[in-house]
Amino acid sequence: MSNESILAGGTRWRKVARYSLLVTLALIMLGPFLWMIVTSLESPEVLVQFPPQFIPRNPRFSNYSEVFGELPIATFFFNSIKISVLGTIGEVIAASLAAFAFARMEFQGKKWIFSLLLATMMIPFQVTMIPVYMIMRSLGWLDSHASLIIPHFFGGAFASGAFGVFLLRQFFESIPKELEDASRIDGASRFRFFVTILLPLSKPALAVLSLFVFMGIWNDLLTPVLFLSTEEKMPLTFGLAVLETVQHNFRYDLLMAGTLLSVAPILLLYVFAQRYVTDAFLRAGVKG
C-alpha cells in the first residue's frame, strides 16, 4: 500500500514536471506569433520604447489598412492562391498517374526508373537552378506564373515531386488487388478503374499530399524570386520579402501586420487539417 502511494507520488511529480516543460515549450513556440500580433497592433512611437509593451493599450487596426495601401497585398494574396491551387492540382495528378504505374503495373525498367526518381530528391536545387532559369527564359516564361505552375504538372520540377509518387504508391499498394480484377471483369478499362474506383478510395492520401504540396508552394520563396520580377506577379512570400527590404528596421508594426496577413491562411488551414497531417506522418512511418 505504502509502496503504491510512493509510486503514485512519483508519477504525480513526474506529471507536473512534464506539463511545466510542455507549457514552457509551447510558450517558446507560440511566443514569436503572439509577439507578431502584439507588434502589428502597436503605434510606431510605442515600438521604440524599452521595455516593450506586451498588451497594446490602444490597438491600432489602421496598421492593417496602411499595409494594404503600401503594397498590393490583395494582389499578392490572389497570386499565391492561384499559383498554389493550380500547382497542387498539377502535381497531384502527375504523381497519382505515376504512382499508379509503379503500384499496379509491370514494365521494363520499373525498378531502375523508380530509384532514379528517388535519387532526384538528393539533388540540391542550387545545382539545377541556372539551367532551369535558362529553360524558363527560352520558353518565355520568365516573369510569368507559368514558370511556377506548369512544372508541377510534370511532377513538380523542384525536388519535392518524387515524394508524392512515393507516398501515393504506398497507399495504392495497400488497396486490395481483387477490386481491380472485379472491375476489369465487368469490362471497365484500367484507366476507368483508376479514375472511378482507385482515386475515390485514396481520398485520405490525396488530401494529405495536396496539403503538403500546397504548403510547399505557398511558402516557397526561392523560385518566385528566381523567375519573377514585376510586383503585380509576386506571391505573398516575395511581396513580404520586398516589404522587409523597403521597411528595413523601421515600422515593424506594418511589417508584422503584413506578415500576419501572409501566415494566417496557412495556419488556419493547418489547424483545421492537423489531424490528417499527424495521420500522414504516422502512416508514412519511416522504416530504416
Partner: peptide, 12 residues
C-alpha cells in the same frame, strides 16, 4: 501514366 513525370524529370 509515367509520361508527365518522366518529361518533368528529363527537362527539369
Amino acid at each position: 501514366y509515367l509520361l508527365p513525370v518522366l518529361i518533368g524529370f528529363t527537362v527539369f
